[in-house]
Design a protein around this nucleic acid. Structure first.
Lengths: 173, 173
DNA sequence: GCCTAAGTTCAAAAATTATTGAAACATCAG
DNA sequence: CTGATGTTTCAATAATTTTTGAACTTAGGC
């Protein structure tokens, strides 16, 4: 609520005070937050991405924390998530340990990568189980309709797994 | 833990005791639960769908509750969700008020509908805001790179909105 | 090689979301 | 009609997820 007195704040090592998000930035953040929500990505992560997205140059850790008004921990974890999913890039300037961040050039590619990383493991892990479920149903002489459903599910799963690598090469190719 | 004594259970209006899910059913449910999780659909909803999906005929309310071991409230809400997203159909048999449920023929169509229902409203609502954000940036003479990003976002949004009705006709066409 | 700025980790707290169950409601078989 | 059956509602609770912040680690400037 009450900010540290102007004087002391200004004197010591110039701990800069950051502006809260402007209305237009909030609008964009809301959009990203909503979209991210569909995929279960936390609010803070979407906000960080939005901030980088509307910002003209790379943004550093403290700016992110200050402008969004969130904790260090959240910033760190959010950046980790975005890094892991190759949605942001860091720019290092010489003579400073500080990293500055900006979005990857293609948001589209980022989204695809994000989806991949969520869906693919599920498909892969499910593969043997789904086959077993189908075999099981056939052995038990289940209704043709059920067999048909389970077959289709298996076919889908296989096709998705085949197509996946074409959609975007795995993170080391 | 301890079921009601066999005798009384058997006598009165035959409140049947339902079998818990079999291993092959659990396997399928796990798959659906995982996939649903990606879209933020609750576990219980995915389980209900999975049960209908592996079952030979339509399944009624009490069977769902009994076999999944969840509350009436959850069953009701889960069915509502699935109904609202046109993922299940009810079959009514004459001489009974009871509804029995089965999955809609196409899981693919169901998934598309589900996605639509989550993504479309977000896109629609965002439309004016995104345009405003772009206009704003242009007026403020923001960096070309930022303008470019925001333009692309707007174009995407518009194209997605145009394409959407083709993907699947809105729920009354 | 220190020492400090920069960032990470993670247990605890807060916030959010899902589930329960009891009461209210609706419908239709009798 | 009416009573019992079948379903919905929703406030309370439980479960899960996200955020915080203080202690810890790391890296690089000096």
């Amino acid at each position: 609520m009450k900010p540290p007195s102007e004087k002391s704040a200004a004197r010591r090592k110039s701990r800069p005070s950051y502006e809260p998000l402007q209305p237009h930035e909030i609008e964009l953040a809301d959009f990203f937050v909503r979209m991210a929500g569909i995929l279960g990505v936390p609010r803070s992560v979407a906000e960080i991405y939005a901030l980088l997205y509307v910002s003209s140059g790379p943004v550093d850790f403290d700016q992110i924390q200050g402008r969004l008004g969130i904790s260090k921990g959240s910033v760190s974890q959010g950046l980790k998530f975005l890094r892991d999913h190759e949605m942001i890039l860091s720019v290092k300037e010489p003579g400073s340990r500080r990293e500055r961040w900006q979005p990857t050039p293609s948001l589209a590619a980022s989204l695809v990568a994000l989806l991949r990383s969520q869906v693919l493991p599920a498909l892969e892990q499910a593969q043997p189980g789904l086959q077993r479920v189908l075999a099981d149903a056939q052995q038990r002489g289940a209704q043709p309709e059920v067999i048909e459903r389970l077959s289709r599910l298996n076919r889908w799963n296989s096709r998705a797994l085949e197509l996946a690598p074409l959609l975007l090469p795995p993170p080391g190719a």
